[in-house]
C-alpha cells in the first residue's frame, strides 16, 4: 500500500462484485477505502429503583421484591408488579434454590472484567430461588458434567472486588 496521510487507514482496494454477471452498473464505484472508526462510550449508569438489590449483595444479603396484592415474589426484583401494577416491597430470600434450566457457554459475552476473569466454559443457570416465583439467571460455578435440571444450589458472595455489582454474587452447588 502506498503512503497515506490517513492514520486510520485499513486498506484500499478494487472490489469486483461476485454477483454481477455482466454490465456492472456500479463500475465507477468499485474503488473502496476502509478505515477504522473509533466510537468509545461510557456512562454514569444509575441502577435506579433496582439499586437496593445490589447494595444488599455487598452486605451478603439476597433480596427479591414481593407484590402486596398477588404475593408473587420477583427475583430479579421488579419495583412494579407487572400482573397488577402494585408497587412491590423488598423481601429477603434465603438464597438457596433449584436449577430449572441452564446452558454451558463456551463463548460468554465478554462485557466486563468480571466475565473475562471467569474460567470457560461458563454455565448460565436459571435458578428458582426458594420463596421466589421467577428464575434468576447467573453464573453457576460447578463442574459442567455435574450440572443438571433439579440441582440444588445457593447464592455465594464474591470476596474480591468486582466491576459490575451483579458479580457480587454467583451460584454454587448446595452441600446438604
Amino acid at each position: 500500500m502506498s503512503e497515506s496521510r490517513v492514520t486510520s487507514l485499513v486498506e484500499r482496494k478494487n472490489i469486483e462484485s461476485k454477483w454481477v454477471v455482466e454490465g456492472d452498473p456500479w463500475e465507477a464505484f468499485r474503488q473502496i477505502e476502509v478505515i477504522t472508526l473509533e466510537l468509545t462510550q461510557s456512562y454514569r449508569h444509575s441502577l435506579g429503583k433496582y439499586s437496593r438489590f445490589f447494595l444488599e449483595l455487598e452486605n451478603g444479603r439476597f433480596l427479591g421484591t414481593s407484590c402486596p396484592t398477588c404475593h408473587k415474589v420477583f427475583a430479579p426484583p421488579r419495583p412494579l408488579c407487572p400482573d397488577c401494577l402494585s408497587i412491590t416491597a423488598w423481601q429477603e430470600l434465603p438464597g438457596t434454590g433449584t436449577v430449572q434450566t441452564f446452558s454451558i457457554m463456551h463463548f460468554p459475552s465478554l462485557v466486563n472484567d468480571d466475565v473475562r476473569r471467569l474460567e470457560t466454559p461458563v454455565t448460565l443457570a436459571y435458578v428458582l430461588l426458594d420463596g421466589g416465583s421467577t428464575l434468576f439467571p447467573h453464573v453457576l460455578k460447578a463442574a459442567p458434567e455435574s450440572i443438571h435440571i433439579g440441582m440444588r444450589v445457593r447464592v455465594a458472595y464474591a470476596a474480591a472486588p468486582v466491576q459490575h455489582p451483579i458479580h457480587l454474587m454467583y451460584f454454587v452447588p448446595l452441600e446438604e
Partner: peptide, 21 residues
C-alpha cells in the same frame, strides 16, 4: 443489560436453555 448480559449471558445460551427444557 444489568441482569442477563452483565453476567456474561448470550442469546445463544438463552435459546439453548429453552431447548434444554
Amino acid at each position: 443489560v444489568d441482569w442477563e448480559m452483565m453476567v456474561g449471558g448470550t442469546y445463544t445460551a438463552f435459546y439453548a436453555a429453552m431447548m434444554r427444557v
